[in-house]
């Protein structure tokens, strides 16, 4: 049977403090007027519970921006594969970002499996947090069907009137609830309140796009030659922000770093972006996506078309980060709507 517990709001700070004693806790922290970031916290007061999706998604903990994958000793020609990880708890993950983590899991457990990712993800405890209302106008989580929790967490918090109701999803979640004895069993009233909240949510969150979830793939499949890409290409400055902030962009580069002894060093994996000029360049100098328009198209295809073939899932989570971060005002909702409009 599904297990729900309740935490009084007045106990929230205590909960985070106790959790932080068990393990490093990271949670959304306010960075500026509309900017938030996941950072280490030790008290509940530091956490921004009402937050717009953070600048970078929690993917930064699952695939770090820079990660050593091998150590070498040149003189001895010795190579040691290594794994880097932190045992952490991420508190406050929205449903869009839970979906993002699920996408990354699919990619890195796909054969040939990525051991570094797989081991690291198992060292991370995930505590979700429900959005009871829209964060802002850029989100399209309802269109992507990610506005209601759909697994991918150990615990999931939903804010009720004077308490939080928490879905206990895993043994790890269970362990936290047991060790931090601030929780009580959810009663029928609590469950009813949650039920009502979800019903209300279904009224607030409505498909933000002009296209049905199931039809999105077809829109993109038929849009390779669309004029929309040209318009976007003219706006784009190829800064790469959209891919860095995307919870499901996972492209990387592999580089060597030599230590100052000129003998030992590391092979590292760093985030890369298909928006960069030379991302798809080959030795002869040809680039298969020289135009910015084609690079943007590629980014969208990687969200709405290609992964459906490969993983039966859209890789857009509806978090809205790419739109929020884009200086050139390339807006995901507008793009999708324009493509769909053109198809009609």
């Amino acid at each position: 049977m599904e297990k729900y517990v309740v935490l009084k709001k007045k106990d929230f700070n205590d909960f985070i403090a106790k959790l932080a004693l068990m393990q490093t806790v990271v949670a959304p922290v306010k960075k500026g007027k509309k900017s938030f970031a996941f950072q280490e916290v030790t008290t509940g007061k530091e956490i921004a519970l009402q937050y717009i999706p953070t600048i970078l998604p929690p993917k930064k903990y699952f695939m770090p921006q820079q990660e050593t994958i091998m150590k070498f000793n040149k003189a001895k020609f010795e190579w040691t594969p290594v794994l880097e990880y932190n045992e952490i708890t991420i508190f406050g993950v929205h449903t869009c970002d839970l979906a993002g983590i699920q996408c990354l899991n699919m990619v890195f457990t796909n054969k040939p499996k990525d051991i570094n990712y797989i081991v690291r993800k198992d060292k991370i405890t995930i505590i979700g947090f429900e959005c009871n209302a829209y964060c802002d106008e850029f989100a399209s989580c309802a269109a992507m069907d990610n506005h209601i929790p759909n697994g991918g967490y150990d615990l999931f918090f939903t804010e009720l009137n004077d308490s939080f109701i928490i879905h206990v999803n895993t043994l790890m979640g269970e362990k936290i609830i047991e060790e931090i004895s601030l929780f009580s069993k959810a009663n029928d009233d609590n469950l009813k309140e949650l039920e009502e909240l979800r019903t209300k949510k279904r009224e607030i969150f409505k498909n933000e796009l002009n296209t049905k979830h199931s039809d999105l793939k077809a829109v993109f499949e038929n849009s390779f030659n669309s004029k929309v890409w040209k318009d976007i290409g003219a706006k784009c400055v190829a800064c790469g922000n959209c891919t860095n902030v995307c919870p499901t962009c996972y492209c990387f580069d592999i580089k060597d770093e030599m230590n100052l002894d000129f003998n030992t060093g590391s092979r590292i994996r760093v985030w890369d972006s298909c928006q960069n000029e030379d991302f798809a360049k080959v030795a002869g100098g040809e680039s298969f996506r020289e135009e910015r328009a084609n690079r943007q198209k590629h980014r969208y295809m990687r969200k709405f078309n290609y992964p459906v073939d490969k993983f039966s899932r859209y890789f857009c989570t509806g978090c809205g980060r790419c739109t929020r971060t884009c200086m050139a005002q390339i807006k995901l909702k507008e793009t999708v709507n324009a493509l769909a409009e053109e198809k009609k």
């Binding site: 996972y250 078309n305 073939d309």
Partner: peptide, 19 residues
């Protein structure tokens, strides 16, 4: 087809052609 593979194991994205 020539592409500049970085990982060789179908992850890094550099050699992607469609899906």
């Amino acid at each position: 087809l020539e592409r500049h593979m970085k990982c060789g194991v179908g992850k890094c994205g550099h050699c992607q052609i469609g899906e």
